[in-house]
């Protein structure tokens, strides 16, 4: 149970980090961003440690499976994927303003995992449908895709926010944010990364479905929605590459794609689905 205790602290750390990223946006002092970033890294290391502990705990209980088997574990892993990808992007673009848009999503995911009604954080053995080597590959690739889409969404929000504010504020303010063309490129690159990961996720899912359900594709709502999400990003990539869509249009597509992704992940459970265990 130590892992869940650590994860509760991690949720709090992410929240504090998010608040500090906000401070940076308001006061325009890099000091706050450095502190926020430090906390995000701390949260990430504690988060990773908790995941390893949970994995080990499942072996000690005699079940022995990766912590990816129910809604609680998938939310925790989703938050982990977002934060690792965000920190990688922050390190690469050397600008910390994106944190105010992405870190809150990590925090909300963790908070939802601990307070959502009917959520079960116990480590449980795998039901027969999940006893497959494809579980880990399928879930990890899908969530890496989801995380990349989340970063694209954060960039999209920042883009829309900045292009809306630019007229009103001093150039000093705009200088503290990444230039619009760089954001535009980042939206595209994150979306493309998510597109590749989701493709791998869908392919591994199909292979698994072939062994588990007897059909590699059965138009289950989750399958259909993952295809919808994939197609939305396919539209985005083609519109940019061939029709030269840039800037606001791309940012709006990143928001729409993110909404589809969220529905694929959580909304589909409202419909009857073979993926009811997630």
């Amino acid at each position: 149970m130590t892992d869940t205790v650590i994860l509760n602290y991690v949720t709090f750390i992410y929240f504090t980090s998010f608040v500090l990223y906000l401070f940076r946006m308001i006061f325009l002092k890099e000091f706050w961003a450095r502190l926020a970033s430090f906390l995000a890294w701390t949260g990430f290391f504690a988060h990773t440690f908790a995941l390893i502990l949970r994995w080990k705990a499942s072996y000690n209980l005699g079940f022995g499976h990766a912590p990816l088997s129910n809604l609680y574990e998938s939310l925790v892993f989703f938050a982990w994927s977002i934060i690792i990808l965000y920190l990688a992007v922050e390190w690469r673009i050397k600008n910390k303003s994106l944190g105010a848009f992405v870190v809150p999503i990590t925090f909300f995911t963790m908070a939802y995992a601990s307070i959502a009604p009917g959520i079960n954080n116990r480590i449980e053995p795998l039901i027969p449908a999940l006893q497959s080597n494809w579980l880990t590959t399928h879930v990890v690739t899908c969530f890496m895709g989801y995380a990349a889409f989340t970063v694209a969404f954060g960039c999209g929000l920042l883009y829309l926010w900045k292009s809306g504010k630019e007229a009103k504020y001093s150039p000093m303010f705009a200088e503290k944010l990444p230039p619009l063309p760089a954001l535009d490129l980042l939206i595209y690159q994150s979306a493309a990364l998510g597109f590749v990961f989701l493709a791998i996720g869908i392919i591994t899912g199909s292979v698994w479905a072939h062994y588990a359900w007897g059909a590699y594709w059965s138009w289950d709502p989750k399958e259909t929605w993952s295809l919808i999400t994939w197609l939305v990003y396919a539209i985005m990539i083609h519109a940019r590459y061939v029709r030269s869509w840039h800037g606001k249009r791309l940012a709006v597509l990143a928001v729409i794609g993110f909404a589809c992704m969220l529905f694929t992940y959580l909304g589909v459970n409202l419909l009857s689905s073979l993926h009811s265990y997630l």
């Binding site: 138009w219 929605w225 197609l231 396919a234 539209i235 061939v242 029709r243």
Partner: peptide, 21 residues
């Protein structure tokens, strides 16, 4: 035309959404 591609993809997306709901 790539416009046709995008139109077809948008149409498919909308149909899939309707069919799941």
């Amino acid at each position: 035309s790539i416009k046709l591609t995008i139109a077809l993809l948008v149409l498919l997306v909308l149909l899939f959404m309707a069919a799941t709901f």
